[in-house]
Design a protein around this nucleic acid. Structure first.
Length: 373
RNA sequence: GCGGAAUUGGUGAAGUGAUUAACACGCCGGAUUGUGGCUCCGGUAUGCGUGGGUUUGAUUCCCACAUUCCGCC
């Protein structure tokens, strides 16, 4: 089935939306956060642990799975869900972000993008059609259009050309798309230019996608610019379709962008921060490598009911991180993902109560105020 | 007791008669945003066993002492 989005209500004082999405694997409330599992696994976590974090949709990556193990392997295994033993919804990214992070400008042509296989050096060409074909085979629940994510700095002229190409790529992908169980999202680009964002959004809406993503953020821009780009994009997207802001996961950015009308987020940060010894808390990000936690026998957060906080102390987790034991990264991943998912839960509550601006004020006061240990 | 060698930070160590004592690990901080998972970026000896001496100048040369190691009695 196609994904179905229902807008339940818009918060009284802002553009924040409370909604529901129906998927092949159940219904989920929005705003929501999707953990990232690039290589068909959320690093260090089992599917059972993810469920315990209350994860809904998770993200996997077309580019990586194409190179290894290859979409045919996953197809023969019975699709991504069966392959990785995840019986929840999966969204696959198109490889568009790898255009940004791996390709040089000269590698991008109308036809597609040239890559070097990172494992064996082979020259590869990823096209909009190829990306969709791979995603059809992976059998994820939501596929993304192949786009170009433009970083900073850039010229307006370049962004203009890039947006037109991204629109042509979106159309080409949609034409070959043929998995009835899967939904397809278009991606709004256009950098910080309102007219380009508008143009891109309006053209995508004409093509009638199952949902819309906002791309081109979290690539080194300032927070103000990011929020502006989100406003310029949401403004021209339909009320009755879900909006997914790609790659954003800083807690304050989630709060700010929910207020601007975003429904779904994804980010590698909770798991990457975990691997590097950091924990997200109500009172800001803490670094468990810091000496002051050596004999801190309290949990990361008293208010958190994740598995890590229920059973382990900062001192112990610090020891695991210092000793490079993977259990430390696992406990912190559980905590950080739980933290972000719980944050979206609180935001949904604030939308229900029409007090999200008060929530934001309180959030900022705690997160950037004096840190409590 | 005699002879020889060594002594540089938390650790392993490089080094030179004279600008800030190399490098690595550790330690202390910081970064991380649609993930090329053990990464990146900073900081970290006002000091070269102790005491004298030579010299314009000594961690570097000389002497004594201490400690450690090796060999011999």
């Amino acid at each position: 089935m196609k994904i179905e989005y229902t807008l339940i209500k818009t918060e009284k004082n802002t553009k924040a939306r409370l909604g529901k999405i129906k998927t092949n694997y159940g219904e989920y409330d929005t705003p929501m956060f999707m953990p990232v599992g690039t290589q068909a696994t959320v690093k260090t976590l089992s599917p059972e642990e993810l469920k315990e974090c209350d994860a809904g949709i998770i993200l996997a990556n077309t580019y990586h799975l194409w190179l290894r193990p290859g979409e045919d392997v996953i197809d023969e295994a019975g699709g991504l869900h069966k392959f990785m033993n995840w019986n929840g919804p999966i969204l696959t990214d198109s490889g568009g972000f790898q255009v940004f992070s791996l390709a040089k400008p000269k590698d991008i042509t109308e036809e597609g993008v040239k890559f070097k296989n990172q494992y064996n050096g082979d020259s590869l060409l990823l096209t909009p059609e190829k990306s969709i074909e791979i995603q059809n085979k992976l059998d994820s629940d939501i596929a993304m259009s192949f786009d170009e994510c433009v970083g900073f700095p850039h010229t307006r002229e370049y962004v203009e050309k890039s947006v037109e190409r991204t629109l042509r790529w979106a159309k080409r992908g949609k034409e070959v798309f043929n998995n009835p169980r899967q939904s397809l999202f278009g991606i709004v680009q256009g950098a910080e230019f309102e007219d380009l964002r508008r143009h891109c959004a309006e053209e995508l809406v004409k093509m009638d996608f199952d949902g819309y993503s906002i791309g081109g953020t979290s690539v080194g821009e300032s927070k103000d610019v990011q929020y502006q780009m989100v406003e310029y994009s949401c403004k021209y997207l339909p009320e009755n379709k879900v909006r997914y802001l790609m790659g954003v996961g800083d807690p304050i950015d989630i709060v700010e962008n929910v207020i601007r009308g975003v429904d779904i987020f994804d980010c590698v940060s909770p798991t990457r921060l975990a691997r590097h010894g950091h924990a997200l808390t109500k009172y800001g990000k803490i670094n468990l490598k810091n000496a002051k936690y050596k004999k801190d026998f309290t949990p990361i957060s008293d208010e958190c009911n994740c598995y890590a906080c229920q059973h382990y102390t900062k001192s112990y987790i610090k020891h695991l991180i210092n000793a490079e034991e993977t259990f430390g990264a696992r406990l912190l991943s559980i905590h950080n993902i739980s933290y972000l998912i719980n944050l979206t839960k609180e935001l949904r509550e604030a939308i229900k109560n029409d007090n999200i601006l008060e929530y934001r004020e309180e959030f900022i006061k705690n997160y950037y105020g004096r840190k409590e240990d």
